[in-house]
Write a protein that binds this DNA or RNA. Sequence first.
DNA 1: TTGAAAGCGCTAACAG
DNA 2: CTGTTAGCGCTTTCAA
Lengths: 320, 320
Amino acid sequence: MATIYEVASMAGVSPATVSRVFNGQNVSADKARRVRKAAKALSFTPSRVARTLRMRSSQVIALVIPDIENPFFTSMARGVEDVAQAAGYSVVLCNSDEDHGKEARYLDIAVGADMAGVILAAAGDNSDVSGLIARNRPVVAVDRSPHGFDIDAVTVDNRAGGREATRALLDQGFTRIGCVTGPGDVETATERADGWRDAVRAAGAVDERYLRFADFRVDGGHKAMRELLDMPEPPDAVFVANNLMGVGALQVLSQRGAMPPAVGMAVFGDLPFAVMAPMAITVIPLPARHLGVTAAKLLLDRINGDDQPPRTVVLRNHAS
Amino acid sequence: MATIYEVASMAGVSPATVSRVFNGQNVSADKARRVRKAAKALSFTPSRVARTLRMRSSQVIALVIPDIENPFFTSMARGVEDVAQAAGYSVVLCNSDEDHGKEARYLDIAVGADMAGVILAAAGDNSDVSGLIARNRPVVAVDRSPHGFDIDAVTVDNRAGGREATRALLDQGFTRIGCVTGPGDVETATERADGWRDAVRAAGAVDERYLRFADFRVDGGHKAMRELLDMPEPPDAVFVANNLMGVGALQVLSQRGAMPPAVGMAVFGDLPFAVMAPMAITVIPLPARHLGVTAAKLLLDRINGDDQPPRTVVLRNHAS
DNA sequence: TTGAAAGCGCTAACAG
DNA sequence: CTGTTAGCGCTTTCAA
């Protein structure tokens, strides 16, 4: 692979001039032309590695998400991408797979690779971004934030959403509302469950046996829904705290011939790729793309030197 | 950010020794301990950039896909990831968005960043991997291959699948079978349409007006399906060449109250997140994850120096 | 086993 | 406008 030196000697200029041509600095038209010709002849591609080493920062930002197979996160990724691309940054997607170990490795890579910044949808409350902070790399949390760090964050009002969803079920006349939420160490899971509690308590007593912690995936929805339905006195409706578990719950209901409204259902987050016109399901829409867009803008601000105190942006729960 | 030099001086050893400790080479137990202690104290993270520059290759592979919001590709990504991680490589996902410009930029980045290799699901037939080849970087094509390059490839038998799907519709008694396929410059789109032609021709004459090229996305499915249904003599069944357009087509059918089997439907690729038990739809399953796994293995072979002539692996069309 | 020193390819002073 | 030069932080001979 050709280097800047070979291009320089072929074009009869100095390496610095080649560098200048490729970075849009002032170079006489004639030399610029010669450089470009030589570069093409040698099929020269500048080494980003050397450039990054020298500059101590690259033009890429990392987006670390817990589940690449969840359309909520890929939609968020699109939002991030669109903003980043427009600003001349590339985005690399890293899938932590809800695993703290993998997440930590990716964050390490982000530091070691001198990435410009990181947008993190944390695998859990105790994700550790101290390495990034210590090295002064901008981080913004999105959807979920790691606890104990004072950083920019973009979220939605999970508790209010959970409350609203559950209340809708109560308004429809259901009386025993179950709740299927995510892992106990994930902020969005506990907050949405808190919303459920709020609404149920306002209507009577909370029965904690109707609360299930699952894994925010389709299978988690299956398992939790089955458990709920197999109780001696099963709930007559259920609030499911994310899109994928909503799919899982519906699959179980479908198998058992008890599709909504036979059993009431409310879901936090849009059901992915739904085919039918709106069924008898309450959906709290989630501005996935908008979360990504907002987080990316915040991050770019920081990259560009903004040093206000950390901000938390709470987006309204409707489609962007 | 601490460097290897600072660690060295704090530990009272040479930089070379620090390097050795972090690369698992022979160092006396005592020095190793001192180095580790110093590294922790300084919260040292090795610079991957410097390392890559020196080694002329990094431990990351790029996976370039045309649509990150398509569960087929994210499932494939999981397959790639699992194999790569196990071999000590990280995977970065790049979304070309079916755009040759973006794709080219990502391929450039892969070269410039000295990535170990690239797995590419090409944006179109004329994607250009000559840069990678010229620089001797391993590439493997997956799902779709760019034309004119003799490289490893992992695919499925698209034509046979299209034929099989269409034949199923004919067997169900439908007589006017439409086809909704992807962009004309995408291999999987044209091959699947060829399969449709094969089957229809075997049963009579092919009416090309029943063939629609769309964009492999939900909206493409909408548009094409509407056009087909609005024809003077609309098809009584349709073969849809990918999962997302299948969703779009079904949404239109649902709106018009003509869900299968009122209108026959066969889809190439599993419908994502389907809630109901199998409807009256023929599905040609696609081994998404397995494609990723296979491609990753091939790539790792090449990275490890395998220089057999390029291989093409055709996977059977069933779930992995 | 260990250290000294060279160099990966690039950019940014600094001179001219 | 252009060239010279000194590193960015790491790995790796080569000697000791």
